[in-house]
Design a protein around this nucleic acid. Structure first.
Length: 288
DNA sequence: CGTAGATCCTGTTAGC
DNA sequence: TGCTAACAGGATCTAC
């Protein structure tokens, strides 16, 4: 599932293959893909035509293409991959894949950009940007750990005020962005913390540690994902090698914990799976 | 406002 | 072999 490292791999692909080109036309076929663009799919396609792509940026799991019109006015095409979104750079003649909901065509002879998303949790929207170039829908998203503006002490302060489970807080994109279920479980395993521990009850050093682990695990995934990135195929699965080799908790139920050999457990939490070592990460007492 | 749970969706896989 | 049910989870909406 695309979390920060996978989305960053896609951003780099957009940087390499889309930035500096002028959009000639757009075709938006999936109504759900444009649901965040309130004026509708046809309006979105109209407004994209003729725009220059000036940058490919990211905050957490949100991607956007910075756009400039003929007068140089800035806007942004915000892209979210959801659960299953992919951005493919492919020649216009090639077969359109199943679940392709949007195509950008460019004024040059280069390849198209296609948005493919079977589960349709992702989407595109045109947005206004602020003075820093941040699109309106991204404004309430917190900095991710790789953002120069990331302020760990501020996140720790806010975590100390949260009465909710630490895992839920880590997944709240308004607190710290980029972390999804996989990396939350991995960070909690590394920090030897059960995800249902109350955030406010953890000490500041422990909170710093879990944030550091989240940053580390995503950085390591990015290193591996970045190397297997195919030049012409911008694929959210670029980091899949990481999933095969380096996970200690996520999807490891029944396998021995790498620290203590106790079998990893899987439980339902927040309508999704949580994976943890029952010995290294003991469940909190029934205080919550 | 903070918190918690339900919901959207379809390809893949496990199990009978 | 073929079918069904469970499973995957990011973001948003609603209710309390």
């Amino acid at each position: 599932m695309p979390e920060l490292p996978e989305v960053e791999v896609v951003r780099r692909g957009l940087q390499a293959h889309v930035v500096g080109r002028r959009i000639d036309s757009a075709i938006i076929t999936g109504p759900r893909a444009a649901r965040r663009h309130l004026a509708g799919a046809a309006d979105l396609a109209d407004r994209l035509a003729g725009k220059d792509v000036t940058a490919a940026r990211r905050r957490g799991k949100y991607l956007w293409l910075a756009l400039a019109d003929r007068e140089g006015r800035a806007q942004a095409l915000v892209l979210h991959l959801g659960m299953s979104g992919q951005l493919l750079v492919s020649d216009a003649g090639t077969t359109t894949p199943r679940h392709c909901h949007a195509v950008l065509r460019f004024g040059d002879d280069g390849p198209d950009l296609r948005f493919v998303d079977p589960r349709t949790f992702g989407g595109l929207a045109l947005a206004e940007v602020d003075a820093q170039g941040i699109p309106a829908p991204v404004a309430q998203i917190a900095a991710d750990p790789f953002d120069p503006a990331f302020d760990q002490e501020s996140v720790v302060r806010r975590l100390k005020a949260r009465q909710t489970a630490i895992k839920r807080a880590l997944l709240d994109q308004r607190l710290v962005s980029g972390i999804g279920n996989i990396y939350a479980d991995e960070a909690l395993w590394r920090a030897a913390l059960h995800g249902e521990r109350r955030a406010s009850a953890l000490t500041r050093p422990v909170l710093r540690r879990v944030l550091d682990h989240a940053s580390d695990v995503m950085g390591e995934a990015l290193e591996q994902g970045g190397t297997s990135f195919d030049a012409m195929y911008v694929n959210v699965n670029g980091a899949s090698g990481y999933f095969d080799r380096s996970l200690n908790a996520y999807g490891q139920q029944g396998r021995p914990c790498a620290r203590c050999r106790t079998p990893i457990r899987r439980e339902e939490f927040m309508n999704r799976s949580s994976h943890y070592c029952p010995r290294c990460q003991p469940r909190p007492r029934a205080t919550r």
